[in-house]
């Protein structure tokens, strides 16, 4: 109840977005697709909201994990030559 009242005050008197709205913006933020206005709203919200801040951190760390930890396979040595050869043959 107290939390609801607190949120109501934040949203209605201080122009804060709701947690629901914050979570909707979460992926746009993570993917760098939010507009400057959305970004500002989002930042303002997570500055004061620990659960949303933590969720954002998790989202970012998963994205980072995908980018950095997946094994990159080496391109087979003969692939480029074989492609070029085929192109020459069809030219």
């Amino acid at each position: 109840m107290a939390t609801n009242l607190f949120n109501w005050i934040r949203q209605n008197l201080f122009g804060q977005i709701s947690c629901q709205r914050c979570l909707e913006l979460l992926e746009l933020m993570t993917d760098g697709e939010a507009s400057p206005e959305e970004e500002a709203q989002f930042q303002k919200h997570i500055d004061d909201c620990l659960p949303c801040y933590e969720t954002y951190n998790l989202e970012q760390s998963i994205k980072e994990m995908i980018r950095t930890k997946l094994e990159k396979k080496k391109v087979p040595d003969d692939l480029i030559n074989s492609i070029k050869q085929k192109i020459r043959n069809t030219a």
Binding site: Q20, L23, L58, S61, I62, M65, K69, L70, E71
Partner: peptide
């Protein structure tokens, strides 16, 4: 569904190794 019910933690994610990430993906 925008609610987050997972109790996955940042530290857990940071400790995952390449194979685990690959398998999940």
């Amino acid at each position: 569904d925008v609610s987050m019910t997972t109790d996955l933690r940042v530290e857990t994610v940071q400790h995952m190794i390449g194979d685990e990430v690959s398998n999940a993906l």
